[in-house]
Simulated assay, not measured.
Amino acid sequence: MTIELKEVWKGFNDTHVLKDVNLKIREGEFVVIAGENGSGKSTLLKIISGLLIPDKGEVRVFDYEMVREWKKASKILGVVLANERSLYWKLTGMENLEVFAGLYGVKNWREKAEYLLKRLGLEDAKDKLVEEYSTGMRKKLLLAKALIHDPKVLLLDEVLNGLDPRAVTEVISFLRELNSRGVTIVLVSHILHGLPENARLIVMREGRIIADDRLSRFSFDTLKITATINGKEVEVIAREEELDEKLRELIKRNAQNIRVERDDLYSVLRRLLNEP
């Protein structure tokens, strides 16, 4: 098992942010973590990376116990955090990668840096100061920094934020390519379109995991039926095979303005997050 959390709790100021989280992630998986702000996504990622210590529970990454062995584990982890400020703004993109490659003892760093900058569309900006980069360009450089030492696991918190639609597509394509080479990816994101259909989607609410399944299974056969009954709008969720039965039931209830729409992933998530 690449990543394993057992009965993990974490709190701040007497508020539990993670509550009895149990999670197993296998080597080579592409995992997406979604949920509302404050649901515990970023805290979970920091716990996995060893940047936060759980109040209770156990965290292991490639058999490293993260509380005691986080330094050893850091050599196989690539991490990008939301609102990360680790780049040196008075250095160029290439100089930044040189600094971080040195921290990891990467010998052929220039060859790797050239490849990453080109692959992420930063080749023409490699000699510009980071302070001249746009938000999206800095996000890409952070990803390059996280990959400079060839990690086995990528932990990414909202790395797609701040990117234009084309850049989102390019970065997702690169992540898919890395995953196909065996890199385990754990991505916290509210952007879900374009991700691999076989990706695993974990939904969090109030510090707990409330759903965990393949991304494709959250929306592929769900329909939403809306209608007006006695002046009130009602909504019915049905699968393909239930459609005729649900429509007959609504007609018996003298429903009007009946509309059928294919449910999308975001609607499914909203329902999950609003369930009691």
Rank of each mutant, 00 (worst) to 15 (best):
T2D: 14
I3Q: 07
I3L: 08
T15K: 15
K19D: 06
D20H: 09
N22F: 09
R26L: 13
E29H: 04
V31T: 12
G35L: 03
S39P: 06
K46N: 05
G50S: 08
G50P: 04
P54V: 07
K56F: 05
E58F: 12
V59Q: 02
D63Y: 08
E65W: 03
E65Q: 12
K72P: 01
K75T: 09
I76Q: 07
V79R: 08
L81K: 05
S86Y: 05
W89H: 11
W89K: 14
L91F: 08
L91W: 01
T92A: 05
L97T: 02
Y104E: 05
Y104G: 07
G105E: 09
V106K: 09
K107P: 01
R110N: 06
A113L: 11
Y115L: 11
L116N: 05
G121A: 11
L122Q: 01
A125L: 02
D127S: 06
V130P: 00
E131G: 00
M137C: 06
K139G: 10
L141K: 06
A144M: 04
L154R: 03
N161Q: 12
R166S: 12
V168T: 11
E170F: 02
I172K: 15
S173Y: 08
L175D: 08
E177P: 02
E177M: 11
R181F: 07
T184M: 12
I185Y: 06
V188E: 00
S189I: 11
S189K: 05
I202W: 00
R208W: 03
R208V: 10
I209T: 03
I209C: 05
R214H: 10
S216V: 14
R217Q: 13
S219C: 12
F220E: 15
L223C: 02
K232L: 14
V236R: 12
E240P: 01
E242D: 13
L243R: 12
D244W: 09
L247Q: 06
I251Y: 11
Q256N: 11
R259E: 14
V260A: 01
S267F: 10
V268D: 00
R270T: 07
